[in-house]
Structure formats: structure tokens, C-alpha cells
Amino acid sequence: MLGIFKVSSFIQLLMLLLALNVTSVIATQSPHITKIKSKVYGVDREIMVSLPSGYDQDKDKIYPVIYLTDAQMHIPHAAPMIQFLAGGISELIVVGVQTFDRQNELNPYREDGREFSKHQGAEQLLKFIETEVKPHINSTYRTAPFEILSGHSLGGLFTMFTFTRYPDSFDAYFALSPTLAYANFSILSELEAKLSRVPKNKILVAYSEQETPFENQYKAFNQFLMLLKTKAPDWLDSQARFISGEDHMTIAHLGLYHALRHTFRDWWLFSNAMVGAPEKFDAHYKRLSTRLGYEVIPEFNELWALTAYLIREQHYDEAHYLIKKWQSYYPNQSAPHYELAQLYIAQNDPHRAVESVSLAIEFAKPNSRQHRRSKDLQQAIKNKL
């Protein structure tokens, strides 16, 4: 955090953020099941999709996509957490791929170490995701060009298989308590041969439990950590470690949390970071966009909270700067004009506040809370004139 600001202001800002976030979590849409007539499998296959809470409000906004293996197990805990973290991380479209025959669908190898053919096992599942699931998601929803693959246990092995053989398939890979020891550590032999040639702008995050009754699980992950240390190129954005006090199942949730926080680190711009230097706002999002490989647009609620803080702390030039950015990112929205009216009131300029609050009313949804707030503010301004 850059600098220190008043505790009272921090508490007020925190309360605003919590109010905005709780509202979004309450409004979260339940995941829905979609059937895909799969040519890869020759039968109907199911996927589960969870959309960000504000997906239907902003028709121009695009979202990165996270693909989860074992949808039936992981969508119920992962989707609500991802929605709750919005603001601290990017909002995401969450896609769960159902895997009913995990042993055969997620595995790149048979138990004796022999590889499945191109039409079996992990190869077949990846082909299904690449040629049928992704095209459906990208044509149906507003997706950003940033995709994450996350898998737990055998799903973690599938993640490592995809990263090792087909690293360009996704931008980020989360392997949570992956079964790297399966088939006599075969995936680690492949990884050792290919890790130094991994493309740039890739993210790899992996966690496993420190305490485990499965000796080979610990041994394999420790060997994986050594490979990252000795073979990974400098350009690979990676984080991998053991986590103490957790087990094979709890890593699925806690590991996903840490993986998301690592991938979208520094997502939040602290309120006082741009005081006296509003250009730091642009620099912050330029860095994020460069690291992630797509244009990162500031979250609506983040802009709202930052603006409210700047007005409250009387940083009026910075507030004007930010509101202009807010209006450019989210045109025809009520809230930026409402805050601009508040800013003009704080600057003792009620005549200009009248114009702004009129636009806030025009763009607010009739009979909404924002519409009522804007009407109340309009009346308060008229009383000052």
C-alpha cells in the first residue's frame, strides 16, 4: 500500500466496498447446465456455466474464462468464491466441464505408464474442450482473450498434461494437489524435457498438501518443485509450494483461492496511490494489461469506491480525472454522473451539479435505488440554489 490515509476514511471506504460486493454476491446467478452434442465423444456432454453477477447490466464488458475439470464437484464451491472475490480479482466466467469417468477421461496414461491414444483419455478430453466447449463459450458469451485451466487431483494431472504438451491452449494453469506420481511419475519426465521451451506469457500455479499419508504424492510434488527451480525459464510466471495444515480435498478450495490471487495480483489500486499523481491510475492498468496479455478495464465498483474516497478526502483534481476515465469506460451509466454532481457540490458549484445530476437521473433505471438517490440529490441541490 502506498502511503497511509485516515483510519476513519479507510473504514468508510471498506464499508462501501463491502456493500457493493455483498450486493453482487446476492445477485450471483446460479450455474446452469448446457448440453453439447459432441462429435468428439459421439454423445451429449454437459458443461456448467456461472456468469458474473453484473453480466446482464453491462452489455459491452468482456470477461476472462476459467475452465474447471470435475464440474459436479468444484462448481458449487468455486463459483461463489470467484464471485465474492470480484474487485480483488477480475470478474470471471466460470465454466465447469463434467467428467463422469474421471479415471479414463482425465488421465494421459494408463496405470502401467502407456499413453492413451489421441482418441482416448486426456487427449480426447482436451480435444473436446478445445474444439467444442471453447467455441460454444466464445460464441455464446462475451469473453476476453484470457483463459485459465484449473484442475484438482486427477484434474491437476490433466492440467499439467495440457501445460506440458499443449502450453498454448490456455494462458494460466492451476494444478491443485495434482496426482503427479501416477503411472510411475510419467508426467514429470515429459515436463523435464519440455519445461525450458514453454512459451512466454504463461502462468503456472501449483499447490499440494505438506502432510500426506501418500509418500509418492509428496515425493512427486517435491520433484516437480525442483524441476521448476532448475529448468523453468525466467519468463514463466510461476508459483508452486506445499501448504501445511491442509489435506488433499481442502487444497481444492484454498489452492484455487491462492492461485487466483497470484494470477490477478495487484488488481486493486489503493485509493491514495494516485493522490498527487493521477497518471499512476493509467500506469497501474497498463502494467496489468501487459502482464496478462489483454486490455484490463477497471471494475465499475472499484471506480465508484475510488471516486468516493477522493471526493471525501478533498482530492478534487484526482476525482475529476478519475470520473472522466469512469465515464469513458462505462458510458451512459448513472453513477459517474451522480458522483460528479457530488464533486461539484463539494466544490461549491451547485449550478454545474444540476447538469450532472440530471444526467444521473436520465441514465438511472426507473424506480431503482440509484434513480431515487439521484432524485433526492437533485432536490438537495435545488434547495441550495
Rank of each mutant, 00 (worst) to 15 (best):
residue 143 T to K: 15
residue 284 H to P: 07
residue 112 D to F: 05
residue 84 F to T: 15
residue 157 L to K: 02
residue 186 S to K: 15
residue 92 L to N: 05
residue 33 I to H: 09
residue 17 L to Y: 07
residue 195 L to A: 04
residue 224 F to A: 00
residue 48 M to G: 13
residue 88 G to C: 08
residue 357 V to S: 01
residue 212 T to P: 00
residue 43 V to L: 03
residue 254 L to Q: 09
residue 292 L to C: 09
residue 160 M to G: 01
residue 66 I to K: 00
residue 114 R to H: 06
residue 141 Y to N: 10
residue 370 Q to T: 12
residue 23 T to L: 05
residue 365 K to F: 12
residue 212 T to M: 07
residue 1 M to E: 12
residue 218 Y to T: 12
residue 48 M to R: 14
residue 205 V to Q: 05
residue 190 E to D: 13
residue 180 L to C: 09
residue 102 R to H: 02
residue 25 V to M: 01
residue 368 S to R: 04
residue 193 A to N: 08
residue 295 E to T: 09
residue 214 F to R: 14
residue 339 E to D: 13
residue 86 A to H: 01
residue 282 D to W: 02
residue 291 R to C: 05
residue 57 Q to R: 12
residue 238 S to H: 14
residue 271 S to G: 11
residue 26 I to Q: 09
residue 347 Q to H: 03
residue 58 D to I: 10
residue 356 S to L: 06
residue 290 T to Y: 09
residue 349 D to S: 11
residue 89 I to F: 00
residue 286 K to T: 15
residue 369 R to E: 15
residue 315 H to Q: 10
residue 243 I to V: 13
residue 19 A to T: 13
residue 9 S to T: 14
residue 72 Q to E: 15
residue 317 D to K: 15
residue 47 I to F: 06
residue 288 L to C: 07
residue 22 V to I: 13
residue 193 A to C: 00
residue 174 F to W: 05
residue 299 E to W: 02
residue 307 T to P: 03
residue 336 P to S: 00
residue 236 L to H: 05
residue 370 Q to L: 11
residue 296 V to M: 08
residue 11 I to Y: 07
residue 40 V to A: 01
residue 303 L to Q: 07
residue 169 S to A: 12
residue 304 W to K: 14
residue 168 D to G: 06
residue 294 Y to F: 15
residue 181 A to K: 00
residue 128 F to W: 11
residue 240 A to N: 00
residue 53 S to M: 06
residue 31 P to S: 07
residue 210 Q to R: 05
residue 356 S to K: 00
residue 112 D to V: 07
residue 193 A to R: 05
residue 292 L to K: 08
residue 324 K to P: 00
residue 216 N to M: 02
residue 34 T to L: 06
